[in-house]
Simulated assay, not measured.
Amino acid sequence: MTIWVNEQIDPCGIVYSCIACCDEATAEECHQTWLKNLSEQQKQEGWIAILRIVDSWDEVPVNALKLSV
């Protein structure tokens, strides 16, 4: 099983938002939206949006919104 995990991480390295799903297109769309919505000030402060792949729901942060898409 492949699960795409979108994470928005604050300057301290804390996961601010997390959405996980099994659909690559949905995950990529979410990731691009998060990247686009980060302001220049947030980027300068160290906010990042990452998209990573995991093989198990056990590897997804517990605070994630888990979509069955």
Rank of each mutant, 00 (worst) to 15 (best):
45 E>T: 09
41 Q>T: 15
4 W>L: 04
68 S>E: 15
36 K>Q: 13
33 T>P: 03
52 R>K: 13
51 L>I: 12
18 C>V: 10
40 E>T: 14
59 E>V: 08
12 C>N: 14
49 A>Q: 04
26 T>C: 09
21 C>K: 01
20 A>P: 01
35 L>W: 06
23 D>W: 07
14 I>N: 08
17 S>T: 12
40 E>Q: 12
37 N>S: 14
31 H>F: 11
68 S>A: 12
22 C>Q: 11
25 A>Y: 14
59 E>A: 13
14 I>F: 15
61 P>C: 08
7 E>I: 06
31 H>K: 05
62 V>S: 11
32 Q>G: 06
58 D>S: 11
13 G>Y: 06
5 V>E: 00
58 D>V: 15
3 I>T: 03
32 Q>I: 10
18 C>D: 01
39 S>A: 10
66 K>R: 15
68 S>H: 15
58 D>W: 08
39 S>N: 07
50 I>L: 08
1 M>A: 13
48 I>Q: 00
20 A>Q: 02
1 M>W: 14
56 S>R: 07
59 E>C: 07
24 E>T: 12
66 K>D: 03
12 C>A: 13
8 Q>S: 09
9 I>S: 00
14 I>Q: 08
43 K>G: 03
7 E>P: 04
49 A>G: 06
12 C>H: 15
53 I>W: 11
11 P>S: 04
54 V>Y: 06
38 L>V: 06
57 W>G: 02
57 W>N: 02
22 C>K: 08
24 E>D: 13
25 A>V: 15
8 Q>V: 14
13 G>R: 03
4 W>N: 01
44 Q>S: 11
64 A>T: 07
23 D>Y: 07
69 V>D: 10
12 C>W: 15
22 C>D: 12
25 A>E: 10
69 V>Q: 07
29 E>I: 15
20 A>N: 00
52 R>E: 04
29 E>G: 07
51 L>S: 01
66 K>E: 03
43 K>M: 05
30 C>W: 05
18 C>Y: 04
23 D>M: 05
64 A>D: 00
4 W>I: 05
2 T>Y: 11
51 L>E: 03
25 A>R: 10
60 V>Y: 01
32 Q>D: 10
35 L>E: 02
7 E>R: 05
59 E>I: 08
67 L>I: 12
57 W>R: 04
56 S>Y: 13
26 T>L: 11
48 I>P: 00
29 E>H: 09
16 Y>C: 07
34 W>S: 05
65 L>R: 13
9 I>N: 02
36 K>I: 13
13 G>T: 08
6 N>E: 05
5 V>W: 01
40 E>H: 09
34 W>M: 10
46 G>D: 00
14 I>D: 08
39 S>D: 05
19 I>K: 02
41 Q>C: 13
5 V>M: 04
22 C>H: 10
64 A>R: 01
56 S>M: 09
1 M>C: 15
69 V>F: 15
43 K>H: 06
12 C>K: 09
4 W>D: 01
7 E>T: 07
61 P>R: 04
40 E>S: 08
9 I>H: 01
16 Y>A: 04
28 E>H: 00
46 G>Q: 00
36 K>G: 13
12 C>M: 14
19 I>C: 04
18 C>H: 02
32 Q>R: 11
46 G>A: 03
19 I>Y: 01
1 M>H: 14
20 A>Y: 03
42 Q>V: 06
67 L>V: 14
60 V>H: 00
67 L>F: 09
22 C>E: 12
